[in-house]
Design a protein around this nucleic acid. Structure first.
Lengths: 388, 388
DNA sequence: CGCCTTATTTTCCACTGTCAATGAAAGAGG
DNA sequence: CCTCTTTCATTGACAGTGGAAAATAAGGCG
């Protein structure tokens, strides 16, 4: 529906071309040979696919890239011109909207956050429209068009249909967000679950590049998990997967809002940690920052709470690793601010609970700037644009 | 029988042909149109792929199949001629070998079990050779050739390489079983992990047909789990996945040999149940059959042990469902003999621990005749033959 | 018997990606 | 400085695939 002018047209009409573009996008500058090898195609196919992409400006020859054994004709690497296109990404929480403008390589160019006046779709959508308009204005400064918008929402989201089926924080049910936002902004819109969006960003632009099986675990207000199996993000048969928050991890642990006891989320979420620190130390901390500060001051009780949380996270990750055998688990989330307080426990608990080969799984952490969720949304928009 | 090509040649050289054959194999008799729809191809493509398969005898036109709205030209359904080929499947445990002969539709024609005199490869292989020879002799009675051999082994198996990397029951390490067995039998050999093999059988010939995401949980000497995600069996980055046995399910439960407490396997495996029944009732039961008999007689203590095991299994399944969102979970295994004793608990515990949409996952049980593991092995051989 | 409907087959045909040969761009060696 | 070697990239012919559309088949119906 939005104007598909020559500028917005992506000249990769065959699956192979799409695949080659994705390979170059995710694996940095690549010679045509190397790209062919990685994509499992012939060099000839790469030459043919690459030409229109260069002509359209999405790829550029990159003479300055790595030089290798200098014998024979020098290679002529190709890379994606990130500046060729921009994408907008939005993350909606219950009370604010975070928006970023990224380039085609998903590097953040602009970031914004605005409060939400309310939670109903009719209150949120105007803010979305305003924020996107603002981002589009910024984009003019770069002289490049914005080719897509991604929106990340916590909860049960059907990306294909573009609808938010259920969002606890926004209290939405069956909102056709993609359609509404497309109408309000004039951009092609991709809507996805927030953790999945973050996982997509890792898969294409982060620590998941090149891996067919990995997991992303987010620690913060809740504990989330995004899974990639067979090279594809898992959505489950009913559109929901990665519910790691209610894996039982602590024998006879604290009661969880789900009705069970000792769930990961009842031990390691921000709220759980804060409450527990209050209970153990008697200090009336009110949020995660308070609790963290107290622990950093050396308060033994608070530190023990973090240690227990770390152990729980480690066991939760071990459960994922035992079931799926991923090559790597990436830990991220706002809760990572406390990483130094539970890193050891995570690793120890993981090692103790990972069975056999699952222990070969690498654990990696990745800081999470506040715009990262919105960047994930932009990554889904890029993915849609490239046609994967 | 017009055997134009050599009997062992499978005339499906393009991926599309393979896919069409698989579709017809797994979805019973199908009209060409229906097959095209399901495979996402044009009817013309089906006609072309089907002809050589009919000529080679792998497919037959099945006039007697379902009749539908009788207007227009009558449809002409096609089905796989199971009798066109036979496959052998072997399951190796620590002390015996179970072998079956199945047809192309994986229906068992002959089943055998023989004890193993020892566990070293050099002790096991001759028995394998003998048993296969016996099955080949049986096959002569059907006048059809055996086109492949599948071998299922518990433990860490690399199907692609055809090696058993580690098998606890056989105490093997890095045994190139596929090669050895191929040499000993003259058949193409596929080696796979036993639970994965069972999962393959369900995916193609059982309750997993048509599902892109499901799980198989086996209850018996151990607790195993086979996963299918995105329509493919999960093997994990290191060849191992589905380790559900050490998911913590009972707060402060009994110690497990893995060093943790309250693992699913420490509560619901045969050995755990037997030991616990002995402990609770004081009756010196020595195996699962004893324990089961005692519970069936109405012994309250024994029944409580089964109830607890059921609850543990239900929670384990919920963990899988929460993480992967499968459409269905199929429970099988020797332990299913006690199903009436813990069915209710499995369902209740699952319902309590499954979060949101995960609860929409269907739980189904499937009895497990003793030859079923070997049938799974045959299924992997069929899969290899068809070229998937 | 001609017409209508639906299934299947046939007949091109566009298109993709590979192959093998050729061109290009260095450095090495004489 | 010229030629050879090496490796990367490109070209043009080509084989195969699967699709679209038209033709054909096989009933039932009036």
């Amino acid at each position: 529906m939005p104007s598909t002018s020559p500028a917005g047209t992506f000249p990769a009409h065959t699956p192979a071309a799409s695949q080659i573009f994705t390979t170059v996008l995710t694996h940095g500058p690549l010679t045509r040979q190397e790209a062919a090898r990685r994509a499992g195609l012939s060099p000839a196919a790469v030459t043919k696919a690459v030409r229109p992409l260069i002509e359209a400006g999405f790829l550029v020859e990159d003479a300055g890239a790595e030089v290798r054994p200098a014998v024979g004709r020098p290679a002529n690497p190709v890379r994606v011109d990130g500046g060729r296109a921009l994408f907008a990404g939005l993350k909606a929480t219950g009370d604010e909207l975070i928006g970023v403008l990224t380039d085609l390589c998903c590097r953040i160019r602009v970031a914004r956050r605005v409060p939400l006046p309310g939670r109903t779709p009719s209150e949120v959508l105007p803010v979305v429209a305003d924020l996107v308009r603002e981002l589009l204005t910024e984009a003019e400064g770069f002289g490049v068009r914005v080719l897509g918008l991604g929106i990340a929402v916590a909860g049960d989201v059907d990306r294909t249909a573009g609808t938010v089926r259920r969002s606890p924080f926004l209290d939405w049910r069956d909102v056709p967000l993609a359609g509404l936002a497309a109408e309000a902004t004039g951009l092609p819109v991709t809507v996805d679950n927030d953790v999945r969006a973050l996982t997509v960003a890792e898969q294409w632009f982060g620590d998941g590049v090149g891996l067919a099986d990995f997991a992303v675990v987010t620690v913060g207000a809740g504990i989330g998990c995004g899974l990639v199996v067979h090279g594809r993000v898992v959505s489950g048969a009913h559109g929901v997967a990665g519910e790691i928050g209610h894996v039982p991890v602590v024998p006879d642990g604290p009661p969880c809002h789900c009705g069970d006891r000792g769930c990961l989320e009842a031990v390691a979420s921000d709220a759980a940690i804060t409450a527990r620190v209050r209970e153990v130390t008697g200090v009336p901390v009110v949020d995660a920052a308070d609790a963290l500060a107290l622990a950093r001051q050396g308060n033994a009780g608070a530190r023990a709470v973090y240690a227990r949380a770390g152990e729980a996270i480690g066991r939760g990750i071990a459960t994922v690793a035992n079931l799926l055998g991923p090559e790597r688990v990436i830990i991220s989330g706002e809760g990572l601010a406390a990483y130094d307080l539970f890193a050891g426990q995570i690793r120890d608990a993981f090692a103790a609970a990972a069975f056999g080969s699952a222990a070969r799984c690498e654990i990696r952490t990745r800081p999470l700037p506040f715009e990262e969720w919105a960047r994930g949304a932009a990554a889904t928009a890029i993915q849609s644009f490239v046609g994967r």
